[in-house]
């Protein structure tokens, strides 16, 4: 299974920290799996239960939110709310008989490029071990579904510093 299964992972990343950390990871030429697809939010506090569920419903194998370090949210407590909502979705998944580990909350600062890469690597590995989401729909894009669910909350994608290129090469340094 492992080796052939490449999970689709949606990351809800805060504009102030994780998104910038991803950019930094790229600049630092750190490797992380290409399985993650990011959606930028003004704050993880804007993330609601339904957004996470919509991604799962559309077939995402894993979903995580990446917000600021606790105590350092630009909007004070947005990341704490996000953690509570992620935990609630874990409960809902468990009730549905789906592994709660498919959703997670990570915290990092904009200066922690390495932490961003480590989170992406750790989570991708976790989902590879879990296997595919039992909910799979032909022709449905989890990324597009999650973006649609977010509506105007999601911010436009920006090209990240050379990260994509490095990841695609697969072996920097």
């Amino acid at each position: 299974m492992e080796g052939t299964f490449e999970p689709e992972i949606i990351v809800f990343a805060c504009h102030y920290c994780a998104y910038a950390a991803a950019d930094l990871a790229g600049s630092m030429r750190l490797q992380y799996p290409s399985n993650i697809r990011m959606i930028k939010l003004p704050c993880t506090g804007k993330l609601e239960v339904i957004h996470l569920l919509r991604a799962i419903e559309a077939g995402a194998d894993g979903v995580y939110a990446a917000g600021c370090l606790e105590g350092e949210c630009h909007y004070l407590k947005g990341n704490l709310w996000a953690r509570k909502r992620v935990n609630h979705v874990k409960d809902l998944l468990a009730e549905m008989g789906i592994e709660p580990e498919r959703v997670e909350m990570y915290n990092m600062s904009s200066a922690e490029g390495a932490k961003f890469a480590a989170a992406a690597t750790e989570f991708t590995q976790r989902i590879k071990e879990l296997g595919p989401n039992p909910v799979k729909r032909e022709g449905v894009s989890p990324h597009a579904a999650a973006r649609e669910a977010l509506g105007g909350v999601a911010m436009p994608d920006e090209p990240l510093a050379s990260a994509a290129a490095i990841v695609e090469e697969g072996h920097a340094e």
Binding site: V49, I50, L53, R54, I56, E57, L92, M96, P134, V135
Partner: peptide, 17 residues
């Protein structure tokens, strides 16, 4: 409405699963 949407999503996920 929010909670109705969540339950609807859960029911779809379960049915699909």
């Amino acid at each position: 409405e929010k909670e109705a949407e969540i339950l609807a999503s859960e029911l779809r996920i379960l049915a699909e699963k």
